[in-house]
Amino acid sequence: MADATTRRTPITTRLTYGWLGLVVVVAVVGPWLPLPDWNTVYDDALGVGPFTQGHLLGTDGNGYDLLLGLVSGARLSVFIAVVAVGLGGLIGGVLGIVAAYVRGRLDTTITTSFNVILSVPNLVLALALVAVFATNVDVTETIAPWRRVFTLIVSLTVVIIPILGRISRGSALAWTSREFVLAAQTMGMRTRDIIWRHIVPNVLPAMIAVAFLAVGVVIIAEASLSILGVGVADGASWGGMIARGRNDLDYYPHVVLVPVVVLALTAICTNHVGDLIRARLDRREARI
């Protein structure tokens, strides 16, 4: 393992970072790119395949350009994933660390609540929450797009909280029993400072590794919800593109394949990054 640090970065790792970087850059600067609006209709090129002149990834049956759709969809997919995992990690992390540090009844309560949430499959939970939060007093009234996005984020955050909460609790539990924490306690350091200076910096890497996996989970969950028809409005995210393309599966399979491949690639890359971080952590632990 000694040469692991000196060895050159493997090509797969570089491709992974490259792809994720591209997705994030496109998501952030997308609106300022000199591109036509994603819902421009090219009625001279309905449902053309990939690598057509002027439409790199082709168009769907309504004449929407798929590349433009992907570029604009990246923004929403990445935004939802990052915010849901960030919020879920923050809340789950705080709960997990506090539970591990305080122990006792509080720990039991928090752990049980995590188990309660985890006992419902991810998607069922997200679906049920979306259904409840996105209900209007007047049933016939349509739901504003921003409210759909907000609802999605809240629901997916609830899904992420116990996943990251458990990780942070487990990791914090291991670190709390270390000698330097005991030493800090004996020297009379304030609890807040012990947690902030000694526990959090050690728990954070493990959480970040899992957070990357969670980003993949959320991107896939968001797409699944779109396929089920409760995601954001048609075509605005990658999942929305898949959902819309499903109707034309018989005639234009590439309309589904293109976003599916992009989505799968992104999920593979986030998993790979999570794995790399964990491998590095394991090496560090092994040295201690």
Partner: peptide, 23 residues
């Protein structure tokens, strides 16, 4: 297998439909 484990089941399902069902 690492790559495959990250692919969502609906991606495989939709691809199968396109190939085995439609094509």
């Amino acid at each position: 297998l690492f790559v495959i484990s990250a692919v969502p089941s609906f991606a495989i399902g939709l691809t199968l439909i396109i190939l085995l069902g439609v094509r």
